[in-house]
């Protein structure tokens, strides 16, 4: 009698303890994995304005700083320099916008006006004015960003690139 009562108490205590532990731990795990469920650091603008069309001379790559805002958990950082891009305005007023980072190892590439090519100083990568790889170790052409022009304003989609 006494033994079966204790047996029951043991099982019941285990069950209660297990339920309690699960009830306490579940929300704690839910809270801990929050960064896996939700982005915590992100840009607030889809298309970022980088200037007016006339700011970019035709046929001459211009290095431009990208300024936008970033959400970092609870904080918003405005007027933040996000990076730079090379902007090339073509004859027909359409634009090519390339990342300044070489697709090889991310060094900053320069425009060589004399040879009219993009040159990477790290491993001698060479790209033409349309971003196509000419020589060097890079696995691909320059990264380029989607652009659009609204009211003569140049906007680039800094978040995604091809």
């Amino acid at each position: 009698m006494e033994n079966s009562r204790r047996k029951f108490l043991k099982i019941a205590s285990h069950a209660l303890g297990g339920t309690l532990a699960a009830g306490v731990v579940a929300p704690l795990i839910g809270l801990t994995v929050h960064p896996l469920m939700k982005e915590t650091v992100y840009g607030t603008e889809d298309f970022i304005s980088i200037g007016r069309v006339d700011d970019f001379p035709v046929g001459v790559p211009t290095k431009t700083t990208i300024t936008s805002s970033k959400m970092d958990a609870w904080n918003i950082f405005e007027g933040l320099v996000m990076g730079s891009v090379w902007v090339i305005r073509k004859e027909d007023n359409s634009l090519n916008v390339f990342s300044v980072n070489c697709p090889h190892l991310g060094c900053g590439i320069n425009w060589g006006e004399d040879v009219r090519q993009f040159l990477c100083p790290c491993h001698e990568g060479v790209f033409d004015i349309n971003g196509r790889k000419i020589s060097g170790p890079a696995p691909r052409d320059l990264y380029s960003f989607e652009t659009k022009i609204e009211n003569n304003n140049v906007l680039i989609k800094f978040g995604s690139f091809t």
Partner: peptide, 21 residues
């Protein structure tokens, strides 16, 4: 509300390059 567009660390060319490297 402030809309989320792109995510730092996941889409910047530098991060992808690092990964590839």
């Amino acid at each position: 509300d402030g809309k989320k567009t792109y995510v730092f660390g996941l889409t910047s060319p530098r991060a992808i390059i690092d990964f590839k490297g």
